[in-house]
């Protein structure tokens, strides 16, 4: 056999080995996008504060994937399914993975779902990052295809609503969906995403009123005090967040990190 053939053969073998051992290889680190910050109008403005100022920050370009989360669990086995206490991750935690603790039939490049807030926060922390705040996430989500304020683009609300309601029951791989004006992908079309202060819209300084603000999302009360009553995707998103507790893990809920 010639040296060239042998080299090619070795390279092919190496590639095959890498393919087979994809689960064990470290996934590529998430690309992050710098967001210049700005002012964002939350769907339910807190009294006296129409706009929330957000300082410049960085956010993952795509949601965290199954492969990336697996590497985290391997490095931090206290977050393996079955090892983590129930209070930090509900019964459905990583339910879509294999029995042996690997990915099973789950797509390595799909966003990781069935993760609780605690697990998501721990992942970001292990990376030296954090979960984005609701204001940061909403600032990025507000971007359209060309403009950082998607409301200025005709048909923006309908496009976002179609992305949200058209999600597949099992999300596909990250990085192939819609990209917005910041260069951030898959904000609407794949999964719901955890934020750091998931109950923020529901909290005010007066703790007696906490229950009342949550009621804003129920029975039409949600239209009073909302900053834009025709942004149905935002209503769906805020309604989803309002029902969450830290240990909840579901098949349609993933996350990305910020710093």
């Amino acid at each position: 056999m010639t040296r060239l053939a042998a080299t090619l053969l070795a390279l092919a073998a190496l590639a095959a080995l890498s393919g087979a051992g994809a689960e064990a290889a470290e996934p590529a680190p998430s690309a992050m996008v710098q967001v210049p910050g700005g002012e964002v109008a939350l769907l339910f403005p807190v009294e006296g504060e129409d706009l929330v100022t957000v300082a410049p920050f960085a956010i993952d370009a795509t949601p965290v994937t199954n492969a990336q989360f697996l590497a985290f669990v391997r490095a931090h086995p206290e977050w393996a399914r079955g090892a983590v206490p129930r209070v930090f991750a509900g019964e459905a935690y990583l339910a879509h993975w294999g029995e042996d603790g690997g990915l099973g039939t789950a797509d390595p490049d799909a966003p990781v779902t069935n993760v609780s807030w605690f697990a998501a926060a721990a992942y970001c922390e292990a990376r030296g990052a954090r979960l984005p705040t609701e204001a940061e996430w909403e600032l990025v989500a507000r971007a359209g295809e060309r403009l950082t304020d998607g409301y200025l683009e005709p048909g923006y609300r309908e496009r976002v609503l179609a992305l949200v309601t058209g999600r597949a029951a099992v999300p596909g791989p990250v990085g192939r969906g819609e990209v917005n004006a910041y260069g951030v992908r898959d904000m609407h079309g794949l999964v719901w995403e955890w934020v750091f202060d998931v109950g923020a819209a529901m909290n005010t300084a007066d703790s007696r009123a906490v229950g009342d603000r949550r009621l804003l999302l129920l029975c039409g009360g949600g239209s009073t005090g909302a900053s834009d009553t025709s942004d149905y995707a935002a209503f769906l998103r805020y309604a989803f967040r309002s029902g969450l507790s830290g240990d909840y893990a579901g098949g349609g809920l993933g996350f990305r990190c910020a710093s």
Binding site: V164, T165, R167, A169, R214, L215, L218, C219, L236, A239, F240, S242, G243, L244, Y248, G250, G251, G252
Partner: peptide, 25 residues
């Protein structure tokens, strides 16, 4: 994909039950 709840018009109580029944998937 979405949370849901229920308001029964026969119920006397907050939201007709909606306040008590918001459930995530």
């Amino acid at each position: 994909l979405f949370p849901h709840n229920i308001d029964l018009h026969a119920v006397s109580g907050q939201g007709g039950g909606a306040e008590a029944t918001l459930v995530s998937p």
